[in-house]
Design a protein around this nucleic acid. Structure first.
Lengths: 210, 210
DNA sequence: TAGATTGTTAATCGATTAACAATC
DNA sequence: TAGATTGTTAATCGATTAACAATC
């Protein structure tokens, strides 16, 4: 096992490995070689072995990888078994949709509270998740210590809310607003920029065959 | 202007350039140099100039770039002025949220119809967008020729619906399901894999300081 | 004119792929 | 045992950065 900084390229491939291994696992597949996994994922076997070697030795010569084992290992690397606590900031349409559809538990996150200013929502439960007024944030942090905040607020308030959450001790933002928020050093941000992906698609369609 | 294949890395940066230039434009900034734009975006001036050189010469020595002009050029490269037609397949929570919140017009897309199986939704309008039964798809394509389909359906039906839309002549998928759909050659897919970004965040938090 | 900044070529750096000895 | 497949080292390829002549 090589011990050096894991590149962003590798990190961004990990969830995809997990997704494919989880699928194989659910289908009851027991073992897989780097070549056949590569064929499925449309990447080289070399890349898979090189990527995995950043984290350890999970295979066996002449056999390949045990699907259940490798799935668990990558899940562990991704922190799926850490049972992090997550809160949703902004229970509008998008926040609402995530509460209704997104399976936080499947990726090891526990969601039990959302925060919103709307009097109509405060005190209600959406799919088992209680909606609270932001003034309760401080008390909530003191008691539950959430590590990740889902930012589904209007973009003009994104930065100031982020600042507040950083102060309360949040460690990561899952940012759905269309602006990039700036956070101090030990805090991470992962952006879901809808516009960017749609524009990439627009580019590809517009330049078809070029 | 170099004439060669534009790399994926460059393509994926274009929407971000557009976002920053649009912001500067709205703030009334008239000109910007590659260095100051690079400072804002946290990338090198070299990279900006190298990236832009794939598409033409948009700057002026000693001056920099005219913000309005460069914004328009990149918008054009991205196909923002093509006024593509988009349809939403699946008007559940997420499809609903997109109809209510997402400004398709701002990126040059025209949305006027969604398709869903639910009898409660068919015939209604959501934020000015009419919901139709999938049986109307064929007629709708014949009349309007939409180029992009937003896939916000349950994942187990994603592939079969995609196949159907490909057959009708769709050219791109904005895929929000958690599965990768396979499409024939001239059709493009851009995935918004929520799970992947959340897992990346989970990884970073779990490996903090390593 | 002098200073600033471009577009492009060359140098560097990093990521992907190929090759292969080790071994199940 | 023979065949298969790993983990890792070396080779290649591509992307980023640096440098600089051209010129506004």
């Amino acid at each position: 096992m090589k011990k050096q900084k894991v590149s962003d390229a590798v990190i961004h491939r990990l969830p995809r490995y997990y997704r494919y291994l989880d699928d194989l696992f659910n289908k009851g597949v027991v073992r897989i070689s780097s070549h056949s996994l590569g064929d499925k994922m449309d990447i080289t076997a070399s890349q898979i072995r090189q990527d995995l070697s950043c984290f350890g030795e999970f295979g066996q010569q002449g056999y390949g990888y045990n699907v259940a084992e490798l799935r668990a290992e990558i899940g562990h690397i991704l922190g799926i078994d850490k049972n992090q606590k997550v809160i949703i900031i902004g229970a509008g349409h998008l926040g609402h949709a995530l509460m209704q559809n997104f399976d936080f538990a499947a990726v090891g996150f526990h969601l039990d509270s959302a925060f919103d200013l709307s009097p109509d929502l405060i005190g209600t439960e959406i799919n088992g998740v209680k909606v609270r007024h932001p003034s309760e944030l401080e008390g909530y942090f003191a008691e539950h210590h959430p590590t990740v905040a889902v930012l589904t607020v209007p973009q003009h308030v994104a930065q100031s809310i982020a600042d507040h959450l950083v102060q309360l001790g949040i460690r990561g933002f899952w940012n759905f607003t269309n602006v990039e928020i700036s956070v101090p050093e030990p805090v991470f941000t992962e952006n879901v920029h809808f516009v960017d992906t749609l524009l990439t698609l627009s580019y590809r369609i517009s330049h078809q065959g070029q």
